[in-house]
Design a protein around this nucleic acid. Structure first.
Lengths: 253, 253
DNA sequence: TCGATGGGGTTGTATAGACTTACCTAGAGT
DNA sequence: ACTCTAGGTAAGTCTATACAACCCCATCGA
């Protein structure tokens, strides 16, 4: 069925263990297509080969080609019409909404002096709620860290993180006085997906103490989850005094 | 293969032409699942039947069940883990950060019943701070409205707006019991530019009363400014009880 | 000239089956 | 207590095949 030229390689029996898991066939097909679109070989509006032609060319089954094309349509890269064909879509501009930033950069950008203190660094077992956030069963092992970030000696953020050991097995051995968790995790791998949820909370007594608040001042709480390869690798809870911080953004429409 | 009970109906040979095309099998499977999640029969975090169990129950092939579940995962409704199972995901945050939405749509999307009450509708003269927000001199005339939005008779938002008379000269004559300010302003012109800033605040006594809070619960405050033709046309202050609302967003990187 | 009717090509859906990969647990051994 | 291993379970992928739905166009007949 497969010709000798231009087909995707058969999956090897013993894949190179140092390399990442080989991309699945349909991902290879997606890559084959996006590469040609990105290079301009297939211009905007032009017609792609039909599913059956791609089957011939790439030596995979039509269902595999179909899945690749369906996902590319979901990503807005191609448009499809039954009975007609598949076409390169017009690229759509995408606005960044919430950015991933290091608070140290944030403070220094504002002219402040940043320092941080490690309060806690340990292994825990997840309770039900935390396990749910990681799509895992209760009792799974997670790393847990708590840091305080100061701007000119005033506490600005409590940074609490739960990290999957599979993603960062050496997390507990890091010196977070010099390298921040954000940078360390980012260096292992930038997340493929990020979720942010913002709450208003009244801080617990211990949080009040850490933030050196006089009373039960309202706080902003940003809960961030990051994914790599479809798995939750980190859940961070960042707590800011409401009087000292705000989130914002501006964009043209 | 299929049992007689609870299976999805076989596609009829002559579908009812008055009805829309019958939903495809995988869509029926999706509906079967989302219905049970929405009804609470399958609670957050609970495990769904495995693919093979659904194959047995619904009398469709595993590929069909798999596609339904894969799409539901893409929509954030369930999470899946190889070797473990499929679980009902945590519900997504109510409002996307930096997205311009009508709270009435927001509430109805969540299955709630929306109503609103006009507390105030007047003309004021801007003080220094407010004039600054509009890039105007103090003393400039602005329209001022305060509404409360309820979800099932529970206050969910205080909506306070300052509107430039040049942009919406008839603002005070509107019946905001039927048309909300958001829709009215949007219909005059969608903004060219939007700024959002999110705070955590402890509400004043009058705000506590309007939101029917028992105590000084932390609140989220979203301040929005919108521009049309380079001029600020609206400044809105939206106050939510922290326990009843959250902002969030998720994106791929 | 015009409309109707097929036929061929293209995507959409569905199935059965096989194999792969990942996770978890129980039990054996240390 | 801890580690290791084997087995069971569940999702992930891929194939070959079939049929349906749809579009376009060429052909045919009035």
């Amino acid at each position: 069925m497969a010709s000798d030229t231009d087909t995707l390689p058969r999956r090897t029996v013993s894949p190179d263990l140092t390399a990442a898991r080989p991309a699945s066939r349909y991902e290879q097909v997606k890559h084959y297509i996006t590469e040609r679109i990105a290079s301009g070989e297939w211009g905007v509006g032009s017609r792609l080969p039909s599913e059956n032609e791609l089957v011939e060319t790439l030596g995979v089954s039509r269902m595999t080609v179909h899945r690749a094309l369906r996902e590319l349509m979901g990503e807005g890269i191609v448009t499809r019409a039954q009975g007609v064909g598949t076409f390169v879509a017009r690229p759509a501009p995408r606005a960044e909404v919430l950015e991933l930033r290091d608070i140290a950069d944030d403070i220094q950008a504002g002219g402040g002096r940043h320092r941080s203190r490690v309060v806690l660094l340990e292994t825990i077992r997840a309770d039900g709620h935390l396990a749910l956030a990681f799509d895992q069963r209760p009792g799974v092992k997670l790393f847990h860290s708590v840091l305080i970030h100061y701007e000119d000696d005033t506490p600005l953020q409590i940074e609490e993180r739960f990290v999957s050991p599979h993603f960062a097995p050496d997390y507990l051995d890091q010196d977070f006085a010099t390298t921040h968790p954000h940078r360390y995790l980012f260096q292992i791998s930038p997340p493929h997906e990020v979720e942010h949820v913002i709450f208003a909370v009244t801080p617990e007594a211990d949080q009040q103490a850490l933030l050196e608040l006089d009373g039960p001042e309202a706080c902003l709480q940003l809960v961030r989850r990051t994914w790599v390869d479809g798995r939750v690798v980190m859940r961070g809870v960042f707590t800011y005094p409401g009087s000292r911080y705000s989130f914002g953004g501006r964009r043209q429409t």
